[in-house]
Design a binder for these strands. Structure first.
Lengths: 219, 219
DNA sequence: CAGTATATGTCACTTAGTGACATATAAAAT
DNA sequence: ATTTTATATGTCACTAAGTGACATATACTG
């Protein structure tokens, strides 16, 4: 765990510049030098942070996915997934920087069909997301993380999230389709629900106090 | 569609050499020159076939996945997936070269945890497989390929196949676990069945002759 | 057999990415 | 307060990845 906050920030900042340049001129017309220049650092710094040019967008993807994971981790056990999304997801509930990041992500996803290099980075980020989901599902259903069924469920759920993200992004950017937050949330929740091979979307194993009373969700 | 058989063969042959070298010395200690030398071609030829060093293994992955897809495409509509696998999958039903290819794939998959570059290639190959599944499921359930639910189902099913492949490979190579063909088939069929969000695993819409009789599976 | 398309070879070139060492900055130890 | 110590970055020479341009071989087409 590299825990320098400053370092992570530089990394993310570089990632934002890379994403912007990739969108403006395409991946192949953006060099490591360009990214460095845009961020005002030495070229060498770029290669210290990223193992390849394309992977420079991964921190941006990861950052979005981490915020989503954080929401899931605070998910009270007695709440259904639709209600969770309804009360926690939406542009009005985000910091401006996070919103800007998500817009960048959406525009990148809309480019996946033309930019295979971006797709590789996106799929790698989804793999990280999948590993986070393993933790979440294992904990939520009281199963070990190595459990095959837990891993299977995490993979199918992550696949659902990925497909919704890709679909919504493409619809928004390429076809100018305006979807409301409520619709996207509904869409996402339904897709996850259909995809999940284990029942972790509905209220799960409400925890009981020693005295037999129901433990409130906030605990 | 580039349809030169010879070209595809060169490509696949290069891919096999790349895979072998990656396994022997690791990805970072294998150069484009090494791959070219091993295959007995000019270095330039390597870069004509692959956009990057790591992507050199994709044709090998794709080749395995194409054979699997071919089996699925011949899947009679009135047969359940377990029975299909039981009657068509297994080392005894494969050409020796195809078996050797699959062994290479299994050994590569066992390396995914240490070799992120290979994982990116693997995930890209799974993406190709996902697109093939879209065609299959759309056709099998008489739905359009653009249908969101078809795409969702393809993604979750491909995720299941991926997880089984990764799990079985890791178990076999790292932990020396011997699994019988029957067990793997069973495992795979169950995972796909659990993962599928649309009912395409069971006999689907048995087709009816104009005279009202059932159309045999072989048609 | 001439003509055309495609795959590869050769080689100079650009861009991606690393190794080694110097410098800055800030927290920890004295 | 000052000296360690650790970590992030800058500088620069270098290796490896990947491309452009042109020549040659091989194979299909009329």
């Amino acid at each position: 765990m590299s825990r320098s906050l400053a370092r992570e920030n530089t990394r993310l900042e570089l990632s934002r510049h890379a994403a912007r340049l990739f969108l403006e001129r395409g991946v192949s017309d953006t060099s490591g030098d360009d990214i460095a220049a845009a961020a005002g650092v030495a070229t060498r710094t770029v290669w210290r942070h990223f193992r390849s040019k394309e992977s420079a967008v991964e921190p941006l993807f990861a950052h979005s996915s981490l915020r989503f994971a954080a929401i899931l981790r605070r998910w009270p056990r007695d709440v259904a997934i639709e209600d969770l999304f309804h009360s926690t997801l939406g542009p009005d509930k985000m910091a401006p920087q996070d919103l800007a990041d998500d817009i960048l992500v959406v525009r990148l996803l809309a480019r996946l069909p033309e930019e295979p290099a971006l797709r590789a980075a996106w799929l790698m980020s989804c793999h990280i997301g999948e590993e986070q989901l393993i933790e979440l599902i294992a904990e939520r259903l009281d199963r070990p993380q190595g459990d095959f069924d837990v891993r299977l469920c995490a993979a199918t759920v992550m696949a659902a999230i990925r497909i919704v993200d890709e679909t919504v992004s493409l619809a928004a950017v390429k076809y100018g389709l305006k979807t409301t937050t409520a619709e996207v949330n509904e869409h996402l929740a339904q897709a996850i629900r259909k995809a999940s091979t284990l029942p972790f979307c509905d209220p799960v194993t409400p925890r009981i106090w020693p005295d037999g009373k129901l433990m409130p969700a906030s605990v």
